[in-house]
Amino acid sequence: MKNEQRQFQGGMQIARIPQISGLYAWYYKPLLLENANDLTKTLTSFLDNQQEIKTQINMRYGVKLISESPLNIFYGSNNQSLAEIFSEAIQYGENFITHFFKSEAVQFFTRPIYIGIAKNFYTRVYQQHYLSLVEMWDDNSRISKYLTLHPEVNVQIVMTELNLSHSFALEARVRNIAPRDLMVHIFPTDNLPQEIGTDDEDMQSEQKYRRTLEKLLQIIADPICGRR
């Protein structure tokens, strides 16, 4: 009965995640949704990934022509920005949108934020993801302090500035996603190959099999914060 639970949201549930292996996927599912504007803010920060194009032309005598330009994403024939699409959609169907995000449909109709492989869900999802995210939210954490000073930065900058390695918690913290608004969906299985190694964060990049499997999963699931 209880062992068949597949979705966990909020610390108390996530702390009770089974200690078995399998795949997991994090989804954004706001626990409280008072108006759709909060949703817009978070979702645009996800999806509107600031990109930049940098061109460098090397000429004779050491002369270089460098151009750096931001790339903004526009959609459709009207060249709409993401924020415009959201506000238009909300204008016509706020009730539907809030209802949708509160429903079970989220994990079928939205891309996951992050996916991964766990030898042990409890270690990976509760200890490494949830607890680190909760710590990063503390006002006294380095990340919170940095983000207070630089609210607009992206994950890459935080990683470089604070000398941190990439992690789910970091992605979520930089995008200001509160721990309570995250839902994790699991697929428990005993069939993972032995070679995927441990859940140890530092060791993971060393595990070739794990990386290959992850790559495949990322291609088919297309998580928003995948390691692309």
Binding site: G11, L31, L32, W137, D138, D139, A178, R180, D181
Partner: peptide
Amino acid sequence: VVNTERPTAILIGTSLQKWSSLSRRSGKY
């Protein structure tokens, strides 16, 4: 003992549910 999520989970249903995280040492902020 500095979980930032637990107090927000407790405060759901009050006027303070708007806080999506609460640091233990933020009484002055």
